[in-house]
Simulated scan of single mutants.
Amino acid sequence: MTDHAHDLERVREATDRLLSAASALDNAALAEPSRLPGWTRGHVLAHVARNADALVNVLGGRPMYVSAEARDSDIERGAPRPLDVQLTDVRDSAARFDAAGSAPGDWNRVVELRNGVTDVAARLPFRRWAEVELHHVDLGIGYELEDLPAEFTERESEVLALRFLGHPGVPPTLLGDGTRAWSTGQEAADPEVTVTGTPADLLGWLAGRRAGTALEVKGGELPALPPL
């Protein structure tokens, strides 16, 4: 069973790591490209802040975003802000999410996210943890997939494997990181393709952060995964 209180604590720790690392930047570094195509580091920090507020909306029974256009414009508007404003926004929005996530409530209730996606409220802290950890990596300031907590890497790999499970565009695939294994893609008794690698490389491929060239593939080519 998902322990939302445990995950909230992990979110706090991840947020502290991100803020500490980002505080060493300057305004010029913030305007440089991140690892996400078309986004500067300022875009990444603005998105991290707005995602916290969006999840507060979800916990409050409101739409995650007013619209896709409003989401994008908020990020664009926030991207060029100076570093001190960005850090304050990330910190304050994180505090709002923490308060909403710590309030008493029915954590088994179903909530709606973007594009009709639904989930159980108790899993929202983990979703937030994933946002903070992966976007910290996306900043390209020395925090790598290998630096992610082992618990997060294992759980997020499982989440992403399940996300692609049954997808018609992904062949039946068995994934392994040396100690754990998951199935993904079209369901079949005997997976066509086996993909193995280090936990960081496997997560990087599943999360669209690495091309998968370091992975060992047997039984066919490395499957092309749909965008997240």
Rank of each mutant, 00 (worst) to 15 (best):
R210K: 14
A150V: 13
L165S: 07
G219I: 00
G42Q: 02
G116I: 12
A161C: 13
G208Y: 00
V90G: 03
R91I: 04
N57F: 11
A207I: 02
G42N: 07
S34Y: 03
R128P: 02
F152I: 01
L25H: 05
N115V: 13
A95W: 12
H43Y: 04
A95S: 15
R114K: 10
A22F: 10
R128I: 02
P191A: 08
R77Q: 09
R91H: 13
L45C: 00
D84V: 14
S183K: 11
R180C: 13
E112T: 15
H4N: 04
E151M: 08
R71V: 11
A122D: 06
T40F: 03
G176Q: 06
G61F: 07
L19W: 01
E13C: 12
V58L: 07
F97W: 14
L124P: 00
H4R: 01
S93Q: 06
D119F: 05
M64E: 10
S157T: 07
R62W: 06
D89T: 09
D147K: 07
G219R: 03
R209C: 05
V159N: 11
R123H: 10
E32P: 02
D3Y: 03
G176D: 08
V66I: 12
D53E: 15
A214S: 15
I75K: 00
G105C: 12
L113H: 09
G140L: 09
L45R: 00
N108P: 02
G169F: 08
R209D: 05
A68K: 13
A54C: 01
A224G: 01
P80V: 00
A29P: 02
E131R: 02
T118S: 13
A49C: 12
A214D: 15
A100N: 02
E144G: 14
H167F: 10
P191K: 00
D201Y: 06
P227H: 05
E69I: 08
T2Q: 11
R71Q: 14
P227R: 04
G178Y: 11
T88P: 02
G101A: 14
V11R: 01
P223S: 01
D147R: 10
V90L: 10
E112D: 13
L215Y: 08
L30V: 09
R81N: 13
V56N: 08
E146W: 02
D7V: 03
S23Q: 13
L203N: 01
G178P: 10
G116N: 06
R96T: 04
R41N: 04
V217Y: 00
V90F: 04
P125I: 07
L228Y: 05
V217N: 01
V195Y: 00
G208S: 03
M64I: 09
S157P: 01
G212K: 05
L174C: 07
D72W: 01
P63A: 11
L55C: 05
V56E: 04
F97N: 09
A31R: 14
A200G: 01
D98L: 12
G204P: 08
L215P: 07
W39M: 06
T179D: 12
A5Y: 09
S67K: 09
V85F: 04
V58Y: 05
A21S: 12
R17W: 13
D74N: 12
